[in-house]
Simulated scan of single mutants.
Amino acid sequence: MPSTQADVWQLRQVLEHRNIGAFASVQPMTDLTADDMRQAISEFLEQCEQDELVLVYVSGHGTRLVQAGGEFFFIATDTDCDRISETGVSAGFVNEQLEQCWARKRS
């Protein structure tokens, strides 16, 4: 989606700007499959140190599924709209990964 690519580019400019975000490292990724999203999030958060501030930002579409208890799912490039809970990336997964992350500051 062109709008998400522009969104990611703009956020990167803000995060890397020395007078605004001053992040030492920004790792933008676009057009990922659900498996690639889960792997990238897991690997990124596993390598974080306690003194770091980490930010996971997802730009794109998502949906809340009533049949899944109202859980929110991020839509990936390979998400099947008829099987979102099986083929999307749950917000629960992202929250679990953030909870397991060593960094004290995380969003």
Score class of each variant (00 low, 15 high):
2 P>T: 07
2 P>K: 14
2 P>C: 03
3 S>G: 04
3 S>K: 04
3 S>I: 06
4 T>H: 05
4 T>C: 10
5 Q>G: 11
5 Q>K: 02
6 A>T: 14
7 D>Y: 04
8 V>R: 06
9 W>E: 07
10 Q>D: 05
11 L>T: 12
11 L>E: 08
11 L>F: 13
12 R>T: 15
13 Q>T: 15
13 Q>N: 09
13 Q>R: 13
14 V>C: 11
16 E>Q: 13
17 H>A: 15
17 H>D: 15
17 H>Q: 12
19 N>G: 11
19 N>M: 04
20 I>G: 00
20 I>Y: 13
21 G>K: 07
22 A>S: 14
23 F>V: 13
23 F>A: 12
25 S>M: 00
26 V>L: 06
27 Q>F: 02
28 P>W: 06
29 M>N: 14
29 M>G: 13
29 M>C: 12
31 D>G: 01
35 D>Y: 03
37 M>T: 08
39 Q>D: 15
39 Q>C: 10
40 A>W: 07
40 A>E: 08
40 A>K: 09
41 I>N: 10
42 S>Y: 06
43 E>W: 00
43 E>P: 00
43 E>S: 08
44 F>C: 06
44 F>I: 03
44 F>Q: 05
45 L>V: 03
46 E>G: 07
47 Q>L: 13
47 Q>G: 13
47 Q>E: 15
48 C>K: 08
48 C>S: 02
48 C>A: 12
50 Q>R: 02
51 D>L: 08
52 E>T: 00
53 L>E: 12
53 L>F: 10
54 V>I: 14
54 V>Y: 08
55 L>W: 05
56 V>W: 10
58 V>Q: 06
58 V>C: 15
58 V>E: 04
58 V>Y: 08
59 S>M: 06
59 S>W: 05
60 G>F: 02
60 G>R: 01
61 H>M: 04
61 H>I: 12
62 G>Q: 05
63 T>D: 11
64 R>G: 02
66 V>Q: 12
67 Q>F: 01
69 G>I: 08
71 E>C: 07
71 E>D: 14
72 F>K: 04
72 F>S: 10
72 F>Y: 14
73 F>K: 02
73 F>A: 01
74 F>V: 08
75 I>F: 03
75 I>A: 10
76 A>E: 06
77 T>P: 08
77 T>W: 09
77 T>F: 04
78 D>Q: 05
78 D>F: 11
79 T>M: 02
80 D>F: 12
80 D>R: 10
81 C>M: 13
81 C>E: 14
81 C>A: 15
81 C>T: 15
82 D>Q: 15
83 R>V: 01
83 R>W: 05
84 I>H: 10
84 I>R: 04
84 I>W: 03
84 I>Q: 08
85 S>C: 10
85 S>A: 14
87 T>Q: 11
88 G>N: 09
90 S>P: 13
90 S>K: 08
91 A>P: 06
92 G>R: 02
93 F>L: 07
94 V>M: 11
96 E>L: 11
97 Q>C: 07
97 Q>L: 00
97 Q>T: 03
98 L>Q: 10
99 E>I: 07
100 Q>F: 00
100 Q>E: 09
100 Q>V: 00
101 C>R: 07
101 C>E: 08
101 C>D: 03
102 W>M: 12
102 W>G: 11
104 R>K: 12
105 K>L: 06
105 K>S: 10
106 R>M: 07
